Amino acid sequence: MPNVLRNRAAAVALLFVSVAVAGCTGETPGTPSPTPGTSASSASSAAPEDPNVPKVTNPLDASAFVGDACKLLPAAAAAELGFTEPGAPKNDTNNPACSWGIRGKADSLQIILGSGNREKGMGGLAGLHKAKEAGQLKFLEPGPDVEGYPTVYYGLQDRRARGNCDLSVGVADDLAISAQAEGYDNEQDSCGTAQKLASAMIKTLKGA
């Protein structure tokens, strides 16, 4: 994978857990961790459940992928999306991540498994809604269900019109996985790819 894609993937993985620290001046979205001094228990019980957050009726267990998020997208599924090179794991953050690129093209994919956010009491789609309410995310919009699981489009800003789509799918009430497609020509291509990526991840989880 070109160095520019590796660097961008690393930045996205970091921002997924530190939007509150990074602020809202950049374009790459992420899911914040609780503010310093906030325990997981207090973060999860500080406010009543948000009725706008859809419940996950059939939660999936992603614990087997915490050590290697790349396994969420098997090589055959990646090839169907046009990515034939192996994914580049990013396990140096609280949330394991993996990115894919195409030599000579801007198209890239990234998966971020929000297991670290879960441990901090900011997991699931509920964590994104909390971040939006706190002003850490400027953009949050319901997305289409993927394989029966709820999703949201989210970010520091809405980047879809520029061919960058950030989709988070709730696989449990306290666990979300980010499916990101960047560098595409338009919103239809990028969000269509992000939805296919989310679908592939869910199928992998169901078969695990």
Rank of each mutant, 00 (worst) to 15 (best):
G143W: 05
V171Q: 00
G183F: 04
C165V: 01
P144R: 14
D166P: 00
G170V: 09
A134P: 08
D189L: 07
V171S: 09
R160P: 03
Q136M: 08
R162T: 13
R162A: 11
C165H: 09
Y149V: 02
Y184W: 11
L156W: 05
H129G: 01
G155P: 05
C165T: 10
Q180W: 09
G170K: 12
D145E: 15
P142M: 01
H129R: 11
P150N: 08
A161P: 12
D185P: 00
D158A: 15
A181P: 14
D185K: 12
E187G: 08
A131H: 07
G192V: 07
S178E: 05
G148F: 14
T151G: 09
E141W: 10
K132G: 00
G135D: 10
A131Q: 11
G155Y: 01
G192K: 01
E147R: 13
D185I: 00
P150A: 00
L156Y: 01
E187K: 11
D189A: 12
V152H: 11
E141I: 04
C165I: 13
S168D: 14
P150K: 02
S168L: 09
R162L: 13
R159D: 05
E141S: 15
S168M: 12
S168A: 15
L175Q: 07
L140T: 06
G143D: 10
E182K: 09
G192I: 03
C165W: 02
K132A: 10
A181Q: 02
D174P: 12
G183D: 05
K132Q: 13
Y153L: 11
D166W: 03
K138P: 08
R160I: 14
D145M: 03
V171D: 03
L167D: 09
N164E: 05
I177G: 06
D173M: 08
A176T: 03
D185L: 03
G135Q: 03
A161D: 15
A172T: 03
L137E: 08
A134V: 00
E182W: 03
G143N: 13
K132S: 04
V146F: 02
A176G: 14
V169M: 10
G183H: 06
A172M: 02
D173G: 02
Y153H: 14
Q180F: 07
A176E: 02
S168F: 07
S190M: 04
Q188F: 12
V169E: 04
A181R: 02
G143K: 04
G192C: 01
V146D: 09
D173Y: 05
A179C: 14
R159P: 00
K132L: 11
A179T: 02
G170Y: 12
L140C: 04
L156P: 00
T151W: 07
H129W: 14
Q136C: 01
E182C: 13
D158I: 09
G155L: 12
V146H: 06
R159G: 00
A181G: 10
Y154K: 11
E182Y: 13
T151A: 12
N186Q: 05
S178L: 13
R162C: 02
Q180T: 11
G163A: 08
Y153C: 03
G143A: 03
L175I: 13
Q180P: 03
I177R: 06
Y154R: 02
R160D: 00
Q157F: 01
